[in-house]
Simulated assay, not measured.
Amino acid sequence: VGVPRNAEKALMAIRESGGLTVNVTDEEIMAAQQLLGRTCGVFGEPAGVTGTAGVKKLCEAGKIGRDDTVVSVVTGNGLKDVANAIAACGDPITIPSDMNRLLAAFAEKGIQAEGV
């Protein structure tokens, strides 16, 4: 965020909780958007998935351990910014409402559908 809504309050909360901050790039944010869609079926807008991008970065840096509990709130739906989603993920799959065709389209793209 270029200009945080209440930077002093945020910094105070970080200091009081013993928390930390991490910067993420636009590329990391768009990768988080793809990750959430592929692994959780969550379509978040870039601003809404920024926290998830930070969690991923902190995991990779070893700041968050494998057994730690973390909550990442996705605050905005991807439909708010479809253009960036298409730029990051490609055009959506368009198929008739038929489960066999859906599964075939998933298989073509290497997407695994579990529990179907």
Rank of each mutant, 00 (worst) to 15 (best):
K57H: 08
D98K: 10
G62D: 03
I86R: 14
I29S: 01
G44W: 00
G115K: 05
M99F: 12
C59D: 00
V42K: 04
E28S: 06
S72R: 02
A10R: 09
A7Q: 13
A83K: 14
Q33P: 00
A10S: 13
S97D: 11
K109V: 00
D67A: 12
L20Y: 11
E8H: 10
T39H: 07
A13S: 12
L103G: 05
L79T: 10
G62E: 06
D67Q: 10
V116L: 10
G65A: 14
E45N: 01
I64N: 04
V1A: 15
E108Y: 03
T94D: 12
G78S: 09
D68M: 06
L58S: 02
G110M: 06
K9L: 12
I14Q: 11
L35M: 11
K56T: 13
E16L: 14
Q33C: 11
T69K: 12
S72D: 04
V55Y: 06
T52H: 05
V70D: 05
E27Y: 05
T75E: 08
T75H: 05
I111Y: 04
E27N: 10
A61T: 03
F106M: 11
T50R: 00
V42G: 01
E60R: 09
Q33A: 15
N100Y: 08
E16A: 15
P46E: 05
L20M: 14
A10V: 14
V73E: 02
K109Y: 02
V71D: 01
